[in-house]
């Protein structure tokens, strides 16, 4: 059976193996289904249309932030600034629309641009000035937090006289079915994120940089440029998250936001994206974000005190990452 003569194929053992991403996604998806079944049995109030919509609505902001964070984490970076940058974006939108009287669409674009700019600055600090992502985005987190407070005068900005703005999140563009736009925006962004990550050159370099930055650089790829682009894209997601947040609350709350970055990271990690980079999916992140909000919602319906909800979510993160570790070990 052995072929002879020169041929460039070393004879090593064939490995039967499933795509590891697929397994993790299956695991995460399975857990989500099990959670849903469990809570549906435990409480008749869980599997109700309104409650499901509530869950999706509460997933939307964290979910959008987590989509952006997925890109960063696949490059083996981290972004601690998404929570407060999101707030800064809401505040800027508030200023554009209410104080400056700009049209809503301009205010929205301005908010998104704020996110992109913050992302680009973090990206430049990381790529050009070689500041580790943890530190660069920690600094960005504090800068954004401070700026949001300064610009808003530490007071909420209300959009009460701009009803159309609230519609962005709470209205429903599909006639007949009461699905708030925030949810549609989340899923829409997920689709866009998935396309960018899997079908475009940006996604390819996201994986390549996370997998082996040096090899990518030696292949003649301008790694710095692409890192800045990737952080900017994540910033755009953050900006959109900020708009949805403001529209949902009908106000920009300058003191809110800190802590969201960790929940976003948690969603990404539960969804099977590896913090060491090179591996991850958008679908995983969507499922991860859903697991977190199903869990919180279900526990609340079962009247588990809020403090304990947090403990459970923490345990779930440990468990999720542990299955990931086991899986990686098996694969090797």
């Amino acid at each position: 059976m052995e072929t002879q003569g020169p041929q460039l194929i070393p004879n090593d053992k064939k490995k039967i193996h499933l795509k590891s991403n697929a397994i993790q996604q299956f695991l995460a998806f399975g857990s989500l289904i099990i959670l849903i079944i469990f809570f549906s049995i435990a409480s008749p109030n869980f599997f109700q249309f309104n409650n499901i919509i509530g869950i999706l609505l509460s997933t939307s902001v964290i979910g959008i932030l987590a989509l952006g964070a997925t890109f960063i984490i696949i490059t083996s970076g981290i972004d601690l600034s998404v929570g407060t940058v999101m707030t800064l974006c809401s505040v800027m939108t508030g200023v554009f629309i209410t104080s400056m009287g700009l049209p809503i669409i301009v205010g929205v674009l301005g908010g998104i641009l704020t996110g992109a700019t913050a992302g680009a600055i973090a990206g430049i600090a990381i790529a050009k000035f070689r500041i580790p992502p943890f530190i660069a985005t920690l600094a960005m987190m504090m800068i954004a937090k401070g700026l949001a407070l300064v610009i808003s005068g530490a007071a909420p900005i209300y959009f009460t006289s701009y009803e159309a703005f609230t519609e962005i999140a709470m209205g429903s563009i599909i006639p007949g079915i009461e699905i708030p736009n925030a949810i549609l925006i989340f899923f829409g962004m997920a689709v866009i994120g998935g396309i960018i990550l899997n079908k475009t050159i940006i996604g390819r370099f996201t994986f390549a940089i996370g997998s082996n930055e040096e090899a990518t650089r030696l292949s003649g790829v301008n790694v710095n440029k692409w890192k800045i682009i990737i952080y900017s894209i994540a910033g755009i997601f953050t900006g959109i998250g900020g708009i949805v947040m403001a529209a949902r609350l009908n106000s920009a709350q300058p003191a809110l936001g800190q802590g969201y970055e960790l929940e976003a990271i948690a969603a990404v990690v539960i969804g099977g994206t590896s913090l060491s980079g090179g591996k991850g999916t958008i679908l995983g992140t969507v499922i991860g974000a859903l697991i977190m909000s199903v869990l919180t919602n279900g526990l609340r319906i079962l009247s588990v005190p809020q403090e304990w909800q947090t403990v459970v979510v923490g345990a779930v993160i440990l468990f999720a990452v542990y299955t990931d570790v086991i899986r990686n070990k098996k694969a090797n």
Partner: peptide
């Protein structure tokens, strides 16, 4: 110097991907 999470083809044409 390879990106382990990419495929053989993706590694070979990294930075020169057909679009």
């Amino acid at each position: 110097n390879l990106a382990r999470d990419l495929t053989v083809a993706q590694n070979i044409f990294i930075g020169r991907e057909p679009k």
